[in-house]
Computed example of a mutant assay.
Amino acid sequence: MSKENRILSVPAANETPAFGAGQAPEKRRQILSGAREVFLERGFDAASMGDIARAAGVSKGTLYVYFEDKVDLFAALVTTECEETAERLFVLDAKEPDLAAALKKLGMSFLEAMLRPEHVATVRMVIATAEKFPEIGRRFLDAGPNSGVRRLSTFLSAKVAQGELDIDDVDSAASQFLSLSKDTILAPVLFGSAATISRDHMEKTVERAVNLFLRVYGARRND
Rank of each mutant, 00 (worst) to 15 (best):
Q30D: 04
I31C: 00
I31W: 00
I31S: 00
G34F: 00
R36L: 10
R36H: 12
F39N: 02
L40S: 07
E41C: 12
R42V: 04
G43N: 03
A46G: 05
A46V: 06
S48G: 14
S48W: 01
A53E: 05
A53S: 11
A56H: 00
G57N: 08
V58R: 01
V58K: 01
S59G: 15
K60V: 10
T62E: 09
L63W: 08
L63T: 03
Y66Q: 02
Y66N: 03
F67K: 08
K70N: 09
F74L: 02
A75W: 08
A75Y: 07
A75I: 06
L77K: 05
E84V: 04
T85K: 11
R88A: 07
R88M: 10
L89V: 01
L89H: 01
L89S: 04
D93V: 06
D93S: 12
A94N: 08
A94L: 02
E96I: 04
P97D: 04
L99A: 07
K105A: 14
G107D: 10
S109L: 14
L111H: 02
L111W: 00
E112H: 08
E112D: 15
A113W: 01
L115T: 00
E118F: 02
E118C: 06
H119V: 13
H119S: 12
A121T: 10
V123I: 14
R124S: 11
R124P: 11
M125S: 13
A130K: 12
K132N: 12
F133R: 12
F133S: 13
E135L: 14
E135C: 11
E135G: 13
E135I: 13
G137K: 09
L141I: 08
S147L: 15
S147R: 15
S153A: 15
T154Q: 14
T154V: 13
V160E: 09
Q162H: 15
G163Q: 03
E164W: 13
E164S: 15
